[in-house]
Design a protein around this nucleic acid. Structure first.
Lengths: 238, 238
DNA sequence: CAGTGGTCTAGACCACGCA
DNA sequence: GCGTGGTCTAGACCACTGG
């Protein structure tokens, strides 16, 4: 690390590394601000500033009187920010995730680059459909780098469940911390028509997501396609 | 104000009010942190925390060695975050803004509510087209509450220029600080076909924006419709 | 009640921008 | 060189959580 950086930045990096090494579980508080200050030989104010950074980065959450805990953003829910799929009672629900296929494949150059893989490296390719009330909402194509996600290569599909990111953590020790998404609109392809059970051709929203770990390395590349008529996205600008 | 709130919050509100009262211009720095600390009888650290809040809210920007300045987000540029319209040389440009119509009208109940107007209040309705190289990109419908924006009722259309938010500030003393946008996808209407010069029907991205002033009151409601094939939006999630 | 994070103070020194 | 914001310290007290 560059010692010219502010101490609170160095401390932030140190703590981020320890968190990335899974040193603390979700229900296990980090050391006290006082303890960290003593351990690293800095003032409590400096520790607080370092944790401020981690908190605004979404890595930890603080609770007065209880402690500081590492945070698990639930990105699978973020789909619900884009698509509004209501169940038969008009409420939002976590959609079912159904794995359609899984195979070890060599990704094309673009995907390999996004995952930080060399040209000849293999990856795990998963096709997945998300549904509510058995109606398909979004069709996903998911790429995971090997050998990092080797544990998912042989896991029975029945054990995948509806949310992937908890699986990444439990089976592969990979925690998703941040993600980048790019939204575009495309015309439906014949494949969309069958996968999404569209009655007639129409616009489709395409979301390309790269998910990153606590250390900033790319963990997953994902392409989601969903019926644009269900699409709605709200954003705050400052 | 509630005196039970932390002092840095009270100070934040006080400063936000003074900023909303246009006490400082864009090139005019706020008082020094030292001065503010002396004026309000608090420590410099408390002033810093108050300004921290204003900075993350996007109200001010700090520059080491120069001072703290009130910030003017250029929301007209934010369209370029959604639509990628390149000129003939393949570069991004600020699109031309062409006012198509302007009239004092009574908005429907939904728009009136969004602007904080009573049912019978009038508003200014503006239709505007944004173009690059004389090709239409986005058609906009803009609603402004009266009498706040009365100065724009009689301003010659030739003096509107390409960007509206600087106009709001100079002619009406209204500074846009934040905004909320909602994106959806719609099928092109006959009106879209002519306004956007579409060759054939296709998807259109619809952006509904409410812009807010420094005091949080709604200043503008705007509906933008643009060709979805040019739409591209990138977002970071944490 | 003890222990946690939240607020606040008063001061020091550093890094940068500008004349 | 001077004034600005940026970093850092060492300590105090408050507000909340949990046993």
């Amino acid at each position: 690390m560059d010692p010219r950086l502010p101490r609170y930045q160095l401390l932030r990096d140190e703590l981020a590394n320890r968190i990335a090494a899974l040193e603390w579980r979700a229900d296990d508080p980090l050391p006290t601000e006082q303890e960290l200050a003593a351990t690293y030989g800095v003032a409590v104010g400096t520790v607080r500033k370092a944790i401020d950074v981690l908190e605004t980065e979404g890595v930890v959450s603080r609770f007065q009187g209880r402690g500081t805990f590492i945070r698990r953003p639930s990105f699978d829910h973020s789909l619900l920010r884009f698509f509004r799929f209501l169940d038969s009672e008009g409420r939002q629900r976590v959609p079912e995730g159904r794995i359609l296929s899984r195979a070890v494949t060599q990704p094309d150059a673009d995907i390999a680059a996004r995952l930080g893989l060399a040209a000849a490296d293999a990856a795990l390719r998963i096709e997945r459909l998300r549904l509510i009330d058995a109606r398909p909402l979004v069709a996903e194509e998911i790429w995971l780098p090997l050998p990092r996600f080797a544990a998912l290569r042989d896991l029975p599909l029945a054990e995948f469940g509806n949310l992937l990111y908890p699986l990444y953590e439990q089976r592969c020790g990979q925690i998703v911390a941040t993600a980048k998404e790019r939204l575009t609109v495309d015309a439906s392809t014949p494949a969309d028509m069958t996968a999404l059970q569209l009655e007639r051709p129409g616009p489709v929203v395409v979301i390309a997501r790269t998910a990153f770990g606590l250390d900033g390395s790319a963990l997953e590349w994902r392409l989601s396609r969903g019926n644009a008529t269900h699409f709605s996205y709200t954003i705050d600008i400052r």
